[in-house]
Design a protein around this nucleic acid. Sequence first.
DNA 1: ATACGAGCTGTCAATATTAACAGTTGTTAG
DNA 2: CTAACAACTGTTAATATTGACAGCTCGTAT
Lengths: 236, 236
Amino acid sequence: MKAWQETQLQALQTCDSEHQIFQTIVSMGAELGFDYCTYGLRLALPLSNPKIVKKSNYPTAWQAQYQTRNYCAIDPTVKHALRSSLPILWTDGLFASTADFWEEARSFGLRYGWAQSMRDSPGATGMLTLARSDETLSETELAAKAFKMAWLAQNAHIALSRRLLPKLLPEADTKLSNREIAVLRWTADGKTSGEIASIMKITERTVNFHISNAATKLNAANKTSAAVKAAMLGFL
Amino acid sequence: MKAWQETQLQALQTCDSEHQIFQTIVSMGAELGFDYCTYGLRLALPLSNPKIVKKSNYPTAWQAQYQTRNYCAIDPTVKHALRSSLPILWTDGLFASTADFWEEARSFGLRYGWAQSMRDSPGATGMLTLARSDETLSETELAAKAFKMAWLAQNAHIALSRRLLPKLLPEADTKLSNREIAVLRWTADGKTSGEIASIMKITERTVNFHISNAATKLNAANKTSAAVKAAMLGFL
DNA sequence: ATACGAGCTGTCAATATTAACAGTTGTTAG
DNA sequence: CTAACAACTGTTAATATTGACAGCTCGTAT
């Protein structure tokens, strides 16, 4: 068990490709007793149309269906994942208001499963789902495997989001100068340029200069967007 | 072991007071072999002066020292925790640039330790530190206990932040209307009121009306602050 | 039936912001 | 030495925002 975790952690952190990382996660899921495994990553930005990516070994037909019918928008496990990092078990109760979706998933062999999510500074939420067709999944089994699940969800997210993030959100690589950060911090807290000028003992012109530079770097249309992006990406 | 986790999870989630929760965490830390335990919570807001709270069973004198000298600002484990959720081991290398701080901690018996952090939607970062005076802490021991640590850091954060958050950040309890959310989303993405009016097919006046209502609810001085707060608190 | 809240709209004046122009100073890395 | 860069400042005009006034419609909960 110890050997497993050590070996696999190595594997996760040294893997070069997303594909390799995901395969490692799949095999760890298998060792926990689950054939099916999906990792979903949802970026917080842009807020009006958040980017989502998935790596999955679910049946292809189901993945396609999920995509085309935009089940992501109604999937209760996704809803839960965005709110809480507690593990969530697939139960009838959970899918009470989305019975058709649930029926359809089961018809593809996705019958017993659970998921756990995890968040990090660049405003990304990752959800790891483990599922299988055959054996029921009891609260007891879940409790017994909670440690490993917590660890796996965490490390899967760290390993995969590190690869996926720069591609999906180039702004995440931006470097802001100290002044830009300071000015954006006050901006995000609701100070006007004039107030920030007083606080920092510089001209209002200079404040606006820094804000505008930061907005350009962050690919933001105005200071509001710049402040939000910088805050969400953890620059402030 | 299974019994331990189940019992303790119960304990964590049914505890009424912060104090009880923290005591439960301390006892779990002790079972992992660590006498000392600290949970620190850092809210992202306000950005220019983030709120921080700690629960700790470190020697009182050290806690006081840490506080008065504002060691939080230089503590490398805190820096790490804000960037990454990977566990971090107290090593000489880690404290290379803060040797005095490190020496002083050791003089209080805080010699071997590690920490792991965890983030959640309301923009809060929690860090759990486990430490002891006597036995050295090897990478091997760390690896062996990584599962439990991941689980403990996660659940400690969930349980404690749930209690601490509403007190520290009353805005977290705000309810925004659907319109307010929609308008703030576009605002956060950098749209002007006029653009949002077109998108949502309402008057510019109405857009500003919703923004202003949201800002009042969120206790924000202007729309930039409202957008940042709403985004950080996960309302958007 | 009536009160309440969400959603919506109007106008006007005071402030704040952005865009576009042009430039100085001081530090640091090659 | 010099190129690059962060930090800083100035002016002007066009746009955007906020604050403070006031009032309508629709649904739903008492």
